[in-house]
């Protein structure tokens, strides 16, 4: 069956489409490679390696120090890489947790209409306060630190995926094969597992990856404001908030490169997400 459909597509699809597929695969491969490389590099950087060196304070970027050095002579490239790794890790934790919340709520909502409108109301509740304020509140409530921010971001980013899954599940529930299974007396859990999950798994994967960029950016913002990670961590938000004190003295590299690196990471996740969506859900590739 699978072979046949493959044959058909290879005969009838124009070369342009095959190229798009190859291109998509290549893009995914490349972005994922860079992201994995960043995380692995950051894991190998020992915090002790970021030593202070007062002979090399406030140096502008050079080949020796690609991103320059700060007021304590620390190499900014190493600090940035470590910070990016930390961002991706927190982003991963928050995104996965967010998706789990979204999946649970979406399935709970599909049980009956009362629960469904409750879930819709819950989405409204979490969207009624600006995200950043809610993350700050949750972060304060949980005592701050990495745990506070991760939970703050996780508890605020499930709304969009929940909405998508809810709509999708509603549509599947009205389809004939689900009705047929219900008549056959299959349990709701069986239907959820055999009929619904295989159809929404794409949305879940893509949704999780697309939460990443938001999660990373919000974590950095909240940390920048002083509610997230402690000042001892080499997080991007911390690096940038420290750099503010040195802007007036002309240390432009302290703010430019770490922020740019964060932007690239966020962009890579976006590109990876969009391309994985194209790959798993070919109809969306024509949008």
């Amino acid at each position: 069956m699978a072979d046949k459909s493959k044959d058909v597509s290879s005969i009838y699809s124009p070369i342009a489409k095959m190229n798009l597929r190859t291109k998509t695969l290549l893009t995914i491969g490349l972005t994922v490679f860079i992201l994995v490389a960043v995380v692995i590099t950051s894991l190998f950087i020992n915090s002790a390696d970021i030593t202070t060196n007062f002979n090399a304070m406030n140096q502008a970027p050079s080949f020796e120090h690609l991103f320059g050095t700060d007021w304590m002579g620390r190499d900014m490239f190493t600090r940035t890489m470590k910070g990016l790794g930390l961002s991706v890790q927190i982003g991963a934790g928050a995104s996965i947790l967010s998706s789990v919340i979204a999946i649970i709520l979406a399935f709970v909502g599909s049980i009956n209409s009362k629960l469904d409108s409750f879930i819709a109301w819950l989405v409204d509740l979490f969207l009624s306060v600006p995200h950043i304020l809610l993350i700050i509140l949750i972060s304060i409530g949980l005592g701050g630190g990495a745990f506070g921010v991760t939970m703050g971001v996780a508890l605020t980013h499930w709304t969009s995926l929940t909405r998508i899954l809810r709509a999708e599940i509603k549509q599947i529930n009205t389809s004939e094969f689900v009705k047929l299974s219900q008549r056959f007396g299959k349990s709701k859990i069986w239907i959820a597992k055999k009929h619904i999950l295989p159809l929404v798994i794409t949305q879940i994967i893509v949704g999780t990856i697309l939460i990443f960029p938001h999660a990373i950016m919000h974590e950095a913002s909240v940390t920048f404001l002083g509610f997230g990670l402690s000042p001892h961590e080499p997080a991007i938000g911390i690096i940038l908030s420290e750099s503010m004190k040195y802007l007036a003295t002309g240390n432009w590299w302290l703010a430019l490169f770490p922020g740019l690196a964060l932007l690239i990471i966020v962009l890579l996740f976006d590109i990876a997400g969009e391309n994985i969506k194209k790959l798993l859900d070919p109809t969306s590739a024509n949008e």
Binding site: M217, S221, F224, S243, M244, L247, G259, L263, D270
Partner: peptide, 20 residues
Amino acid sequence: ILQSAPTFWIALLFLMVFSV
């Protein structure tokens, strides 16, 4: 690019370029 840029970083850059 702007969608992926952290707001506070853009603000920092603007402050750096236009004020400093």
